[in-house]
Amino acid sequence: MTTQTTLTEAMPTAILETRNLSVSFGGLHALEELDMQVSQGEIVSVIGPNGAGKTTLFNAITATVDISAGDILFEGQSVRGLDPNKVTTRGIARTFQNVRLFANMSVLENVMVSQHCRTKQHAFGALLYTKAFRREEAEIRQRATEILSFFGTRLIGYRMDQPAFSLSYANRRRLEIARAMATQPKLILLDEPVAGMNPVETAELTGMIRRLRDEWGFAIIVIEHDMGVVREVSDRVVVLDHGVKIAEGSYEQVSKNSQVIEAYLGKGVPEK
């Protein structure tokens, strides 16, 4: 009875829903029958020890790995079996755990190229240099600059024209987020956004993740190992272990859950 009411309440606002989602590689079950929901404008953290299947969840959502069973609904429609680029076009963008920028393209170009699925000028427009083409180019550039200025002065100015490989580690992570924003998504998947950052940068980015939701209206799923960040940003926390969801709830609830503690710290030796 209670589950029934929560479902009907959650349905209209759920932007992403996984149903019985399973991914296996040969005999290894990376994800098993995962049920999970993300509402509009919600920040959900996915935590769990290494190898728990967190990144596999992201890969499954963005169609980079094949789903073996179950389904993924985005805005009520299945995205199972779509090409990765179609998923992005529907409105899901992601960053990568091991920063994967277009290293030799400039910072600005990285953000410009990510608007590809939102623009439509074709070869003839470019060849004839039509008005529509020029307008769209200007718009792409304009939007890219806007997105980059979200990160303060870190990525604009002279840096815009520098190749992405010349950026500092933290700036590369920021640029990855900027690139995801440029695809104009409704849901952003952030894979360990503060990994490798120092405490100051971490604090700054934590605030930014909230601003992404508040100012840009994205729903966000974050994979993060830094519990401080998880506590700061999450509306809800989902804990995975060996591909199975072992707990879900607010940070406080989850952090007291005995199963979660066991997954992270191991079982205490029973006293005699």
């Binding site: 980079t64 680029n85 963008a93 992601r94 994967r100 277009f102 030799n104 190229v113 590809h116 939102r118």
Partner: peptide, 16 residues
């Protein structure tokens, strides 16, 4: 250029 740099990421950024 994006495809040349990293095809997988290009695909994930919405490029067919």
């Amino acid at each position: 250029m994006a495809v040349r740099e990293d095809e997988t990421v290009a695909e994930a950024m919405g490029i067919n």
